[in-house]
Design a protein around this nucleic acid. Structure first.
Lengths: 220, 220
DNA sequence: ACCTGAACACCGTTCAAGT
DNA sequence: ACCTGAACACCGTTCAAGT
């Protein structure tokens, strides 16, 4: 409320993260950001170039948290067990993203490659090279992993996210018979609540890719 | 220019696709959309509820093109060769998306599940079930594929997209040594131009997942 | 140097009015 | 019924002015 002077880029970005955590990125405007700091919107422009720079800064902050989480890991040396080392790294990144559900959307919105993201992928590649990957296979692996290396994947279709998937799908039963059957199959025991474990699904997809890469390691 | 009367939802959506194709979604506003139809912005609201409905309609149009492409495929019966059938379907979808580079971004921006997208995933699931998948494994496969089933994957880090990756990365060489070495390795022959083939990388990632699923088919 | 108020050029959208 | 003009409540951002 009261304007504590001494604004700084860091303070602006911390406030932006707080707003995004509470209200999502839709609620993050230059005016709301300024208000949360007890200041006028125009004051922000002395510390960040514009709103795009604020979003870039958001990526930096999240990547900082991820790097911190990765650094605190007690992972095996990649030379010993690259797969476990990679798995732990990705799941540590995922834990950070769970705290900032808006982060994937902001990552995707950035067109240029940020240094912080490049540095993270450099670490992922370094891990694989130490684990016995050629640069060529490492390159392909980065593409194959895509955003999964950072702990999230794109879900375009989420029957699980529906409030009442059974009713919703029943309404369009003839249009999507297999999805209806799939849910019926999953709920054969009775309760449908939480029938889909996102964390387990993420790990399944991740393991599928890591297993595939392990099979190619040393051969390509 | 001259207002040809006889606006309709379909005509509005076709115009919206044309604008997105030419200028990207940033250039798609209710005002620009109306102008391209020789009409005032407010006229649009007689045919679409609001801008969100326009974006939903964009998804419908693209999904329609994808379903059309899939229907025209001469793919093997899933019972005979589910992997080839799936591969052809995904790559056909990808060809449509290449024509509409803005589409992935719009897909991601939709929170609710659209009927058109649900129908597509229903087809994917049906293909797998006919190919010998249990509903349980089919469910996991849908998650593992994610947006890849529709022909695109999330690339958060694209050194390839840089105009001059060598110089750009050289500037931050000490921060990302492995990425620099990877590019040096890829350009050992000389020309770096087109060193990364996005289509090939997409197919590599897709095959990695399809191979993994094939190994589990019938066992889970 | 840092912060501010008023203003500008945009948005999506409501509303009352036209035909 | 369909289309319109003016207006409203927002955006991000520029600019000249304050301290």
């Amino acid at each position: 409320m009261a304007a504590e002077a001494g604004l700084s880029r860091e303070r602006v970005l911390r406030a932006a993260v707080a707003i995004a955590d509470e209200r999502g990125t839709a609620g993050l405007t230059m005016r709301s950001l300024a208000a949360s700091l007890g200041v006028e919107a125009m004051s922000l422009y002395h510390h960040v170039a514009n709103k795009e720079a604020v979003l870039d800064g958001l990526v930096e902050v999240v990547m900082g948290e991820i790097e911190e989480a990765v650094a605190g890991l007690d992972a095996p040396a990649p030379e010993e067990d690259w797969r476990t080392a990679m798995r732990m790294r990705v799941l540590a990144a995922r834990e950070v993203l769970v705290r900032h559900p808006w982060a994937p959307g902001v990552f995707e919105s950035r067109t240029g490659t940020s240094l912080a993201v490049a540095r993270y992928y450099d670490g992922v590649l370094g891990l694989m090279v130490r684990g016995g990957f050629s640069y060529e296979l490492g390159h392909r692996a980065l593409h194959a992993l895509g955003s999964r290396a950072l702990g999230f994947s794109q879900e375009l279709f989420e029957p699980d996210g529906m409030e009442a998937p059974e009713e919703a799908l029943a309404a369009m039963a003839e249009a999507v018979p297999h999805l209806v059957a799939m849910i019926a199959d999953a709920s054969h025991g009775g309760a449908l609540l939480g029938w889909c474990d996102y964390q387990a699904e993420f790990e399944f997809g991740l393991d599928l890719i890591l297993d595939g890469l392990e099979r190619l390691r040393g051969k390509v």
